[in-house]
Design a binder for these strands. Structure first.
Lengths: 158, 158
DNA sequence: GCTGAAAAGCATCGCCT
DNA sequence: AGGCGATGCTTTTCAGC
């Protein structure tokens, strides 16, 4: 099981900030920025990876260029808060490739999903599939028309 | 202005899929996977970057390990749908480091925000700051208690 | 826990197909 | 468009501080 090193120092935090903003930076460049030579810098990166603090590295791809014209969020309410039903719903949507995120919401029985769709027809089909799911009582669709800010991860500058 | 190459072929799509799942893969490894030699593979990657189809590369960092214990979404309704007010609200929250995403929602006057907070007190402070903002009429907080699925980007397997 | 040197591996260029 | 070979960097290990 991963997670947590007792103390992340300022250098670790700076490494995380740099890699969060440019995940493909070479280790030599990273070392230069955090004012270390390459080997100890690389050791720190490996330690952060192994501790699960760095979970992975991802290219950020333009959805529209790939034919995913629509991004929407769905606020889904279930009929009951029974553990087994909550579980069943999550297992179901985990299988759908169009569902990219599924968050359980505090207060019981609600989920917030981030979903992508090729077009309006596809979006409707997905919403209907959600609505007609046995455990679902209510679906509110929040379609994104403009994204004013989208910064990956968490603040590290502070 | 970037964006769009007339046709992305199967190899381009495979490159995107590989880099979306491991953004730090070496070009040699990537070339091996897409069954190309290194130079043309690198040329394709550069082309995708320059076209804006690859927007960047980011390390995915564990929020909790860095002290961001709470992730919440805020569904914010504004008092009016006047362009200037919508604009003003976006400009305001863009400045807040805790606001990581701000999406305008179809239907008018609503925004969905992804926000991180250090603890409950911090979360309350942020919610209050939103609520007391001049243009805001209503804030619904959706606090994440469990994330069942979190896949970066868009489906590329299809 | 850092440095520095050295070996292996990688990115990238020019040229050829 | 893709491949080959050469060059200069980068990564990674290891000995020593």
């Amino acid at each position: 099981m991963p997670d947590s090193i007792d103390n992340l120092d300022a250098v670790d935090r700076q490494i995380l900030a740099e890699l969060q903003s440019d995940g493909r930076m070479t280790n030599v460049e990273l070392a230069r920025r955090v004012d270390l030579s390459a080997p100890p810098c690389l050791r720190r990166v490996r330690r952060l990876e192994e501790a699960g603090i760095i979970r992975g590295y991802h290219a950020e791809v333009d959805p529209v260029a790939l034919g995913w014209e629509i991004t929407f969020f769905a606020l889904v309410g279930l009929e009951s808060q029974k553990q087994t039903l909550l579980q069943a719903f999550q297992e179901e949507v985990k299988q759908w490739p169009e569902v990219r995120e599924c968050h359980m919401i505090r207060g019981g029985g609600d989920f917030l999903l981030r979903v992508v769709a090729r077009d309006t027809a596809h979006e409707n089909a997905l919403t209907n599939r959600l609505t007609s799911h046995a455990t679902v009582s209510r679906v509110q669709t929040l379609q994104t028309i403009h994204t004013a800010k989208q910064v990956p991860g968490v603040p590290l500058e502070m």
